[in-house]
């Protein structure tokens, strides 16, 4: 294992069985991510980026290969282990924000804490909220928030349990340039100021430029440049 790596994937594959057809979404991914790194994953649609994130985030099991996260081997994990991985080790940010529509911004953040079983608000809660600039929007439901605000609430929700890794799947895909910049700035500050390890999928080279390192995916593999 590479020294200090928080994620270490070797020959990772994922095959979906759709009826009689096998879809090889990942065909042998090798990737190593250092603690505190801000990594961008770029590549054409259908190249397996989201699938890789879903595996790293414990939403679906890998088919073969090895993938270690914080020293835990994902290939041997049970459903319950993956649930606990999602709860404690990773935080997700999606393109479509994915806030719960019936809850306020604050409740959306709180429910993540509730699910993780953390008894009290982390000391950092207020500073997270302040950093993300959503103090004034906490009591609004998602439909009363702009896309940029919703995405900032989603980021707050993703980091409230202090995850080791933040996985952001096209976090600016639905945002205009100005809001994209705000969100990307925030991610970079989280990375710089709090040492948050971040993996971000993006189509946009400008967005990718915010990160420390860029890897390219094609046909279910990471291209070695």
């Amino acid at each position: 294992m590479t020294d200090g790596a928080i994620i270490e994937a070797r020959e990772l594959t994922k095959t979906f069985h759709v009826g009689d057809v096998d879809v090889h979404a990942l065909r042998g991914v090798n990737l190593s991510v250092a603690r505190g790194e801000f990594l961008s994953v770029v590549g054409p649609s259908g190249s397996g980026k989201s699938t890789l994130f879903h595996i790293l985030g414990g939403l679906t099991p890998p088919t073969s290969g090895s993938v270690m996260i914080e020293g835990r081997d994902l290939i041997q994990m049970s459903d319950a282990d993956r649930t606990s991985l999602r709860k404690k080790i990773v935080g997700f940010v999606f393109q479509k924000y994915n806030l719960l529509p019936t809850l306020t911004a604050e409740e959306n953040i709180e429910i993540a804490r509730d699910i993780a079983g953390s008894p009290a608000r982390p000391a950092a809660f207020d500073s997270i909220v302040k950093l993300l600039g959503i103090e004034g929007r906490l009591h609004h439901k998602p439909r009363a928030l702009s896309g940029g605000e919703q995405q900032r609430v989603a980021i707050a929700r993703a980091i409230v349990n202090d995850p080791a890794i933040l996985l952001a799947d096209e976090p600016t895909g639905n945002l205009d340039t100005q809001n994209s910049q705000v969100v990307l700035d925030l991610l970079r500050r989280l990375n710089h100021e709090f040492g948050q390890t971040i993996l971000m999928i993006t189509h946009n080279p400008e967005a990718a430029a915010y990160s420390d390192r860029i890897v390219h995916m094609r046909d279910g593999r990471i291209e070695q440049l």
Binding site: G57, D79, T83, R86, N98, L100, I111, I115, R157
Partner: peptide, 13 residues
């Protein structure tokens, strides 16, 4: 979708 979100946040069955 909401159930998917909860699960992504680590909600157990």
């Amino acid at each position: 979708r909401e159930i998917g979100i909860l699960k992504a946040l680590g909600a157990s069955p």
